[in-house]
């Protein structure tokens, strides 16, 4: 979906659009981590609560809503993609139930399990994804890249703003994992840097394969581009499928991570219920919500609504954490003097 948004947002110089996104991503992550580093061994829920109940509500409720929206949209969108790409006979609800069931199961096992599962899945599926990325250069025609000069017209486009979903989802977990894990800030930045080429690839491969004019008409440009790959020695006809299913493996993981975070926030406000029951009821509610989304148009509408929340999360959370961090540091210094 990311390439679709980018391609739709501008007709030339896509690299500028991607680059701007990546830079914003980097700035946000660094500010966020800098802010978090003021509070060793505490997660953002703890940080906000230490300031005051009102602050906690003010900042965490939008995050909570955002997470819920993310889960609903992801589940709904990916099950739609699955039905389009390969399971055309299976009803949507069955696929959504499967996605939710697995992510709920993983989330119920806790954060460590999520990460360890992540490592295993990376070992199993990353080679496949990398392989597909490499072979997807098969049909590339470099001349399509040519109008290189870009302008900033795209910023105003709705599609471009929507494309930020690719950046906003991942990094928030850094604020939640603190008591369980410690991480190296440098490593996080390196990991983010490693991801950059993939943003570029995913946009440029469809463009280089079909050209801007054609690519912009596709619904899922990258999938179509991968679909066009033809490898003689492979016994499988559709490489797309492997790409999508490896992605889905990670989507399940992402869903479980987000629902785990959601539960952590809810736990803060309603501590009396057991997290497992909460998780199960949350999944059921999300499932019902997903059922009530009738078609793809509504998914896109949801997606657009979520953009507002997304920017709130993208901007307000890191900056507020940073400011609270500086504030508390000053206070500590005063006390020390």
């Amino acid at each position: 979906m990311y390439p679709e948004n980018i391609i739709a947002s501008t007709s030339e110089g896509h690299w500028l659009a991607i680059l701007l996104g990546v830079i914003i991503h980097f700035v946000v992550i660094s500010v966020y981590m800098k802010g978090l580093s003021f509070f060793p061994n505490r997660n953002i829920i703890g940080i906000y609560s230490s300031v005051g109940k009102g602050t906690a509500l003010f900042f965490l409720i939008p995050v909570l809503l955002y997470f819920l929206m993310v889960i609903i949209i992801t589940v709904r969108a990916y099950s739609e993609i699955i039905t389009i790409v390969f399971l055309s006979n299976t009803p949507l609800w069955a696929i959504m139930a499967l996605l939710l069931f697995i992510s709920t199961y993983i989330a119920s096992c806790g954060l460590e399990t999520i990460f360890r599962t992540g490592i295993l899945l990376a070992i199993l599926f990353l080679p496949l994804i990398l392989f597909i990325f490499f072979v997807s250069f098969q049909n590339v025609d470099w001349r399509y890249a040519i109008p290189i000069d870009g302008n900033f017209q795209f910023i105003k486009k709705r599609d471009y703003l929507e494309s930020f979903f690719a950046f906003s989802g991942g990094y928030l977990f850094l604020g939640f994992v603190q008591p369980f894990f410690s991480y190296n800030r440098k490593n996080v930045l390196i990991a983010a840097a490693v991801l950059i080429p993939f943003f570029f690839f995913s946009v440029y491969i469809p463009i280089l394969t079909f050209g801007q004019a054609t690519a912009s008409t596709f619904f899922l440009p990258f999938v179509v581009a991968v679909d066009a790959i033809n490898i003689n020695w492979l016994m499988f006809d559709r490489v797309t499928m492997f790409f999508i299913i490896s992605l889905i493996a990670f989507v399940m993981l992402f869903l479980s991570l987000v629902s785990w975070k959601t539960i952590r926030i809810i736990e803060q406000f309603i501590p009396s219920i057991k997290p497992v029951y909460m998780l199960i009821s949350l999944s059921v509610i999300i499932f019902l919500f997903c059922l009530s989304v009738p078609d793809w148009k509504d998914v896109e509408k949801l997606f657009w609504w979520n953009t507002i929340l997304r920017f709130y999360v993208l901007i307000a959370i890191p900056i507020s954490i940073y400011l609270i961090g500086i504030h508390s540091k000053r206070k500590n210094q005063h006390e020390n003097i």
């Binding site: 699955i82 390969f86 399971l87 299976t90 696929i95 499967l98 697995i102 199961y105 993983i106 096992c109 460590e112 399990t113 999520i114 990460f115 360890r116 599962t117 295993l120 899945l121 199993l124 499928m241 299913i245 490896s246 889905i248 493996a249 399940m252 993981l253």
Partner: peptide, 17 residues
């Protein structure tokens, strides 16, 4: 179908984890 295989792998991985 194939989605089920991947789901199964994810489940098994999570179980091991």
């Amino acid at each position: 179908g194939i989605l089920g295989i991947v789901a199964g792998m994810v489940l098994v991985s999570a179980y091991l984890a």
